[in-house]
Write a protein that binds this DNA or RNA. Structure first.
Length: 487
DNA sequence: CTATGGCACGGATT
DNA sequence: AATCCGTGCCATAG
């Protein structure tokens, strides 16, 4: 299957460490407490994607481990609904109206499952997977019906070569040559892809993505003609925010340029796959700061007028893992030889289950506390972020600080507004100051120098040095005052 | 002379 | 122990 190559790519990334870890584990037959601790730590630091790999290899390599198609509430043992939380244990507690409901949410569609039926049609049609399925699948599902069957292969090929921003990593010419198809056909399919949500996905460059978005947008509402010209002819000036230059190039007045730029940054997105829009000048350090799948989803409880939050910790499997009870029975009937290895398998299985539970427990407690502390941030945005350190939290939860660090690292959270941010954002000590800084600058009448910005920030209660303002500015990709135009 | 970025130091965080 | 962060000092550009 075409999508399998994407999967394969991800697998290769983790296969090595996983394998070597198992070998070390195999030799320490007796699971001491340190082994327990070590594996819990390892599991804790894994993202949902990686956890899936880990579980898959455990299941494959250990016959004593079994995945049952049934879920029970860990605290009251009642059966759980296929998706969702325990209605008894997790229901709103009267004494804590602000506390979120935290629970594990299973996901079977994380990857196209083993046998590889990855076609878009048999993805389950529910709202949950809408929000969390990966980008290629999401796009494929929209366009499958518009394409000739023989073009779907081509589309799938293109979709597996998107980067984190939703742009193509291969040139159309290469694709045509590789698949032995006429270039025109590749272009036609690309055109279909670009028109799917997120609009502009599958373009080769940010510029192309913007052009497509402009075109689509112009069907439904008027688009400033100047915006089109800016994107088409003045892209590099635009990304450097050299608006004066732009005006000269297109012989247009400053006012019109401002207007068009404003339109562009409000309505277009040069990186279609990014969940946040605007901010044309973001230098896009092409890092790992953009995630496809969140590991945690925070949302409002649906159909509820209360403002309680729901926190889902993604478990990339259905059902639950346990030691196969049959295995226990048969073990005594086995010969001396096999008995030994089976015993080892069983120990490993129960250790794994225990570690997994502990991991999930820690994640739940962590998120519970974090969402309470950063409730305003979750609901009202970055300005409301409170400076919280991991150390502080580790004391509250009574775990070692490194536990928190591992749990926080490399995880992505989807906020109620749809944005996906790293979990470490919740521990960002100066994001709120940077947000205020951004606000001041975007609302400025005349470019403020860094020194003036120091005063303005101080007025709002943020005491920082001049040098620090400069740092924040560059972090936000904002040019120095003399290169900035008033907006 | 002013505004800003590079470098490096010390303290906090991980 | 390693890394991150805020800051001061200094060189450079305009």
């Amino acid at each position: 299957m075409e999508l399998a190559s994407l999967t394969l790519y991800r697998y290769t990334k983790f296969v090595l460490p996983v394998v070597s870890m198992f070998q070390t584990h195999y030799h320490s037959l007796r699971p001491t407490t340190t082994a327990h601790l070590a594996q819990t730590m390892t599991l804790l630091s894994l993202t949902a994607d990686e956890l899936r790999q880990q579980i898959d290899s455990e299941l494959a390599s250990n016959p004593a481990l079994e995945l049952v198609d049934e879920r029970r509430c860990p605290s009251c043992q009642r059966p759980l609904p296929p998706r969702g939380f325990c209605p008894v244990c997790s229901s709103p507690k009267a004494d804590a109206p602000d506390e979120p409901v935290v629970f594990l949410s299973p996901r079977e569609d994380f990857y196209p499952s083993g046998t590889g039926s990855a076609s878009a049609e048999d993805m389950p049609e529910d709202n949950f997977s809408q929000a969390v399925e990966d980008l290629p699948t999401f796009v494929m599902r929209q366009i499958a019906s518009e394409l000739q069957p023989e073009d779907r292969r081509l589309a799938a090929y293109l979709l597996t070569h998107l980067n984190e921003d939703g742009l193509l990593t291969v040139s159309l010419v290469e694709v045509a040559r590789f698949l032995h198809l006429p270039l025109a056909r590749v272009q036609a399919v690309q055109r279909v892809i670009q028109r799917a949500e997120p609009i502009g996905v599958g373009s080769c460059t940010p510029q192309e993505a913007l052009l497509v978005q402009l075109e689509v947008l112009s069907d439904t509402r008027p688009v400033p003609a100047l915006a089109l010209e800016i994107v088409r002819d003045g892209m590099d000036l635009l990304s450097r925010r050299q608006y004066a230059e732009l005006g000269r190039l297109l012989s247009a007045g400053q006012r019109h340029v401002q207007e068009a730029v404003r339109f562009i940054s409000e309505n277009l997105n040069p990186y279609p796959a990014r969940s946040h829009w605007g901010d044309v000048a973001a230098p896009a350090p092409s890092g790992l700061e953009v995630y496809h799948h969140p590991d945690i989803i925070i949302s409002h409880i649906k159909d509820s007028c209360s403002d309680r939050l729901m926190v889902e910790i993604i478990m990339p499997v259905w059902g639950m893992l346990r030691v196969n009870p049959l295995f226990r029975k048969v073990i005594n009937e086995a010969g001396e030889e096999t008995k030994e290895t089976w015993r080892a398998d069983m120990d490993r299985a129960s250790l794994f289950v225990k570690c997994l539970q502990q991991r999930n427990n820690t994640m739940q407690r962590l998120m519970q506390r974090v969402v309470v502390l950063q409730r305003d941030f979750v609901l009202y945005g970055e300005k409301q972020l409170r400076p919280v350190t991991r150390v502080q939290l580790s004391k509250e939860l009574d775990v070692h600080e490194s536990t928190i660090s591992r749990a926080v690292a490399n995880k992505a959270v989807q906020l109620p507004n749809g944005r996906i941010v790293p979990l470490s954002t919740f521990f960002d000590r100066n994001l709120n100051v940077r947000t205020v800084l951004r606000e001041i600058i975007s609302g400025e009448k005349r470019p403020f120098s860094d020194n003036e910005l120091v005063d303005l920030l101080a007025q709002r209660g943020y005491e920082v040095a001049r040098r620090t303002v400069a740092k924040y500015r560059s972090m936000e990709g904002i040019l120095p005052a003399h290169l900035r135009q008033s907006v």
